[in-house]
Simulated assay, not measured.
Amino acid sequence: MDIRNCNDPVYETWLDEVRKVAHVMEDMVDEYLHQVGQEHDMGCCFYLKKGLRRPRSLLSLNQIASNVREIEKDLANLAETKNRWVSMVNNGDNSNSNYIVKRSQDLANISRSLDEEDLVGMDKNREILQQWLGGEDAEFSVITVNGMGGLGKTTLAANVYRKEKEKFQCHAWVSISQTYCTEDILRNIIKELFKDRVDVPSNISMMDITCLEDILKRFLWKKKYLIVLDDVWTPEAFADLSRALVCTDKGSRVLITTREGDVAALASQGHILTLESLPEDKAWDLFCRKSFSRETGHECPEAMKLLTKEIVGKCKGLPLAIVLVGSLLHVREKTVEEWRRINDQLTWEIINNSRLGHIRNILYLSFIYLPTYLKSCFLY
């Protein structure tokens, strides 16, 4: 199932029918293996003793064969229905990309809005990023923050961006994501750069890519600017935008956050910041801050420490997961029974609890980006 189709009722109905047939097929395979296994266990002597009499299992195999023929008809009908009525999203088709865009925006929004106190264990990375952005080096430089989803790339970048942006003559923050339109990204950069200015270009919504690039080049010329490109998935996405980014000697910076190593490699020499999962002590500290914010010193009650450590361990050091799960438990009753119940059904909570939707987004966006053959392996 391609989750980009998940809001299409026709697709959902068709998929339900596919599931039903798949379950019947699975039952048929089990029944066949059961019958073959029985014959193998009985051995050839059974048939010699019975002479030419037809074994009862053969009748069952005939019935299975008949059922298989019916299933084949069902599959043919499903294939015909899909081709005629179900509009599928293929790997190269962006026609139904709103789902990805919305998920990316949701994830970016919550990541940007996290407080500074959520940057536990990020002090060193924050200092490095501030030094690269706010340094006196007059050369134009590209800085990349790299790491898997949920490590806090956007949160860190947003925190440093808020502190450093006033050192630049102009600044802009735009989210790219997997599905993007170069013209729309250029328009968003222009809108951000011209925010609170009276000389905003008119009719940019009607301009083609050449005009948009020209406006951007003329505006950035001889300026010290800071532009953040959040959530870049391919080198081509940056290449499409870089034509409009003037390389001046004013100390301008472009900051990229990405999950992909080949995008991170676009950085100027020595300007790749790779984030890692939080170590156990930092993960514990962050979780307790979110879950026990009302307790003195954010202390976890002694009776609940064992269960709490299990829950923190399931977050695998991912700051976003720790913050969201911790915030969820913050509003739950602080008893061993309640937390044991949450711990036992944490997988269910992640799938179904709306407060944890952003963890699902991390997984969904990564899954969509996989090539088809790896999706099959992942599901297996």
Rank of each mutant, 00 (worst) to 15 (best):
C211L: 06
L245S: 07
L255Q: 01
A283F: 05
C211V: 00
D196E: 15
D281N: 15
Q269K: 13
N188P: 00
E260T: 00
I256R: 07
L216W: 06
L245M: 13
I227C: 13
D240H: 13
A264Q: 01
L186C: 04
K223Q: 12
K195S: 10
G261F: 00
W284D: 11
T179N: 13
N188D: 13
L273V: 08
S175L: 01
V246A: 10
M206P: 01
P201W: 02
Y180K: 01
A237M: 13
P279Q: 10
L216Q: 06
L273N: 12
D199S: 11
R197Q: 15
T274G: 03
C181V: 14
F219W: 09
C170T: 14
T179D: 11
I190T: 10
D208I: 08
L255H: 05
L245C: 03
R187K: 12
T258D: 01
I176Y: 03
A239T: 14
P235A: 05
E183I: 02
L216G: 05
D199C: 10
V263P: 05
G251I: 12
A265P: 03
K222Q: 14
K224V: 07
R253L: 06
M207Y: 13
I185M: 03
L186P: 07
V246D: 13
W284Q: 09
I189A: 02
V198F: 08
S202H: 08
P279W: 06
M206R: 12
T274N: 07
T234K: 15
V254M: 02
L241C: 06
V254L: 03
I227E: 12
C247H: 12
I209L: 10
S175C: 10
E260V: 01
I215C: 11
V174P: 04
